[in-house]
């Protein structure tokens, strides 16, 4: 289990290798990567700036990761989230889950992303061609997505 908040980019292959090297018990690795889209609401995006609440962000990510490990038989996991100014096409977030079988790894990765998007204190500000900028509004769909996990799994 690990979480990292950082300005620098991440290398997906290197992160997978770090999780799986020197072990033969892992049967499934799932990764999710979120990227900056070049368009928002029909406008060309110049950059996206991510602000966070240092300390609370890491605590929330660790809590959701621990919850995923309590719900599914995970053998390893990683959450990396970037902050600062990012250009279209850049990586924003990486989630990796590893388990003996694929179902737990798939479900846990989705769970981690759904909870991260509704609980971890990050805020996106978009800057558009022409210079205007705006904070991104929270999406109702993200709140709905997290509700499907509220049932007790065990």
């Amino acid at each position: 289990m690990a979480v990292r908040v950082q300005t620098q980019d991440f290398d997906i292959a290197a992160e997978i290798a770090a999780l799986t090297s020197d072990r033969t018990d892992i049967g499934a690795v799932v990764t999710f990567t979120g990227l900056v889209r070049g368009q928002a609401s029909g406008h060309d995006l110049v950059s996206m700036t991510l602000e966070h609440y240092p300390g609370m962000t890491e605590a929330e990510l660790e809590a959701v990761e621990a919850e995923a490990h309590a719900r599914w038989p995970l053998q390893a996991s990683l959450i990396v989230h970037r902050v600062g100014e990012l250009q279209p096409g850049a990586n924003i977030v990486l989630v990796i889950t590893a388990s003996p079988h694929r179902q737990a790894a798939f479900q846990a990765a989705e769970f981690l992303m759904d909870y991260l998007k509704t609980r971890a204190p990050f805020w996106k500000k978009e800057t558009f061609a022409g210079g205007q900028s705006a904070w991104v509004d929270a999406r109702e769909a993200d709140a709905t997505a997290v509700e499907r996990w509220t049932r007790s799994p065990s």
Binding site: G34, L50, H52, Y53, M56, H81, I92, V93, M113, L116, K117, T118, R119, A120, P121, F122, W123, K124, W135, V136, D137, A138, R139, D142
Partner: peptide
């Protein structure tokens, strides 16, 4: 005590 808008990470 911190105040902030609904979060928008991920």
């Amino acid at each position: 005590i911190a105040f902030f808008p609904p979060v928008t990470g991920g």
